[in-house]
């Protein structure tokens, strides 16, 4: 039964090796999707390229369905799998700040590392900027400490809050995502920018 490493107490070295291999797959998937291009990423917000939407939602749906099926086959103990801790204020405010960073800088941390790897100079500066941002947060932490821990809800799942099974909520998410894919593809036609798409 999974998750393998925590349950079978596998050595730290193997754990780190697996981390590297998973990162390798992560990097390849991001680069192949085109997430190493800031103008492609930014296209999401102007409608000329909705790759971000498609990749992002397809990936989370595949993983979500995978977890539901693994659970059904008795292959994973979901009570051990990490569920993000929810602090209302910091999640929303942090998310808003990140959204601003996304549209200004054109990357997010994962994609910037991937883009820097293939020589995008703007991505290298973005990574540097991220380190500065984290340093600023660390240096001014006393100012944010209270906000950081305000309104703690805990590691709560949306399905539990709504009182539905994971699989049923999954189906709803799938239908919503497919609708968005459809809108996204329409937007790509409507806001087509041949000049940009050619360069990407």
């Amino acid at each position: 039964m999974g998750p393998i490493i925590p349950l079978f107490e596998i050595s730290e070295e193997i754990n780190l090796l697996i981390a590297f291999l998973i990162g390798l797959g992560f990097g390849i998937a991001l680069e192949q999707a085109g997430f190493s291009s800031s103008r492609k990423l930014a296209g999401m917000f102007y409608g000329y390229d909705t790759t971000v939407l498609k990749v992002f939602f397809t990936a989370s749906i595949v993983a979500m369905l995978g977890l539901v099926f693994l659970n059904d086959l008795g292959m994973i103990d979901m009570s051990i799998v990490y569920v993000n801790d929810y602090y209302i204020a910091s999640a929303i405010i942090g998310g808003v700040i990140m959204g601003g960073g996304f549209i200004i800088g054109g990357f997010c941390p994962g994609t910037s590392v991937c883009a820097a790897a293939i020589g995008k100079i703007d991505a290298m500066y973005f990574v540097g900027g991220s380190l500065i941002g984290i340093l600023i947060f660390g240096q001014t932490y006393p100012l944010w400490e209270k906000l950081h821990f305000a309104q703690h809800i805990g590691p709560v799942k949306l399905s539990d809050t709504l009182g539905v099974k994971d699989g049923l909520l999954g189906l709803i998410v799938i239908i919503a995502a497919l609708l968005m894919f459809w809108i996204g593809e329409m937007a790509e036609k409507r806001f087509k920018r041949e000049d940009i798409s050619k360069e990407l």
């Binding site: 059904d72 994973i76 099974k165 699989g167 049923l168």
Partner: peptide, 14 residues
Amino acid sequence: GLIAAILPQNQNSS
């Protein structure tokens, strides 16, 4: 998604 929605959600415990 339909199959996932129909499946009973068992709680596995290791």
